[in-house]
Write a protein that binds this DNA or RNA. Structure first.
Lengths: 230, 230
DNA sequence: CGTAGCATTGATGTGGGTCAACGTATGTGG
DNA sequence: CCACATACGTTGACCCACATCAATGCTACG
């Protein structure tokens, strides 16, 4: 790894406040690799050999079972993935593929585990990463159980619009991915968008315009369910 | 806290390998309280004042939104709860209530956080707890997305039967709770049990007899989805 | 241009929720 | 010991959200 890269990584939340010697040891055998869109980074069911940290790009966690496939989350920089599998040293529960061209840091799982034991700051930072993902996925489960697909979509739009900070914005991902993200089919997404036309959403192609007040009345957003997102 | 209690707690996975002085500081202001079945321990939406560790009993994490309520998980000893909220110092995403008479240790959230920063062993143990819960809930999300309610039930029965280690066993929780746990209505649970009669399950009252081979053929269990359970 | 994605639309099927009625225990007090 | 209440489970009728399958439209781009 080049020293410029090392410098970049040093500033990542995961390594904030970590002792120099621990940082050096943890990153000694680390590698950085560039990935093309659509490449599979890892497959569920294997023991984790590395911890992965997304430096840039976009990555999808998904899983398949009995002919079905489901998207569990997206990861954006500076997120890490399969932290829980590395921490417990158990098989990965998800597969990972790149959505966009991505640069990914990989650190030997064993080095991570010994780093956790050596430096409380590192363990605290890694645990924080894990806690954030835990909360993300918990929100997702609540979302799934207590809202209809159309409501999920409505709340996603509200969040996305809030991020873009303009009433009109264009979808950052293709609709097929959005459907997967929301746990619904493409067809149903299309219909749901039509339903939302009656509640403050207008769209032409991938450009969305939101009347927040109307959409909020429909969506009932809640900070206990709508969190950090793609 | 009595020294006998302190001794008990010292042996908990959360405090395995923690330095004595850190242990003393973390547990200095800790309290143990006994709870009756059905008591609400904490309500979602509040900032966590304590970390809770279940010493014995059974506790349910649940959430409500827009007139609906959903059970997110059960916690059995020696599990901790709202670890993620304490770690991130963000509002709790779930409410907690006791199912059975329970004894619960509570430790000031601030003491936990400073303990994390002081002792790598403690941070590692707390992170392990978090990682285990993360994986539980991830499995639950996969379960929810890729299986029907009846399949979820079938796999739950397989797991429960495996624990009991006899072909015949009686349900450890009332059916209404089981339905909540599986994310379905009581009515649907009843129907699902009837469906499973054709696949190796026979029941009279709350006593279940499972023909593993037949049920496995229906349920398609997977270690990537069926994990530690109630 | 044609053809290869993607998105929409329609027709139809089904898992599972909802509501109401009916059973089946396990009490409690007369 | 029986009448009754209360809680829990089952069954049936019905409905709705969402998936599935198939056809069609839309854009893009070699």
């Amino acid at each position: 790894m080049r020293t410029a890269d090392q410098h970049l990584i040093r500033g990542f939340p995961l390594f904030r406040g970590v002792q120099d010697d621990v940082f050096d040891r943890v990153t000694a055998s680390a590698q950085i690799r560039d990935w093309q869109p659509g490449e599979t980074v890892l497959v569920e069911g294997e023991k984790p050999a590395w911890l992965f940290v997304l430096l840039n790009g976009l990555v999808e966690a998904f899983s398949g079972h009995g002919g079905k496939e489901t998207t569990l989350s997206f990861v954006r920089p500076p997120g890490a993935f399969i932290m829980a599998a590395v921490w417990t040293d158990q098989v990965q529960l998800t597969s990972i593929r790149t959505i966009e061209k991505s640069r990914i840091l990989q650190i030997p799982a064993e080095d991570i585990r010994s780093g956790l034991a050596q430096d409380a700051s590192f363990a605290k930072a890694a645990g924080l990463e894990l806690a954030i993902r835990y909360r993300d996925i918990l929100r997702e489960l609540k979302n799934q159980r207590m809202r209809s697909a159309t409501e999920r979509l409505a709340n996603w739009l509200l969040l996305e619009q809030e991020i873009s900070n303009t009433p009109s914005f264009s979808l950052p991902i293709p609709k097929s991915l959005l459907a997967a993200r929301l746990g619904m089919t493409n067809e149903h997404l299309s219909r749901s968008l039509n339903i939302l036309r009656d509640h403050g959403v207008s769209l032409s192609g991938s450009v969305i315009t939101v009347d927040r007040k109307a959409l909020i009345a429909y969506a009932h957003p809640s900070i206990l369910m709508d969190g950090a997102d793609i």
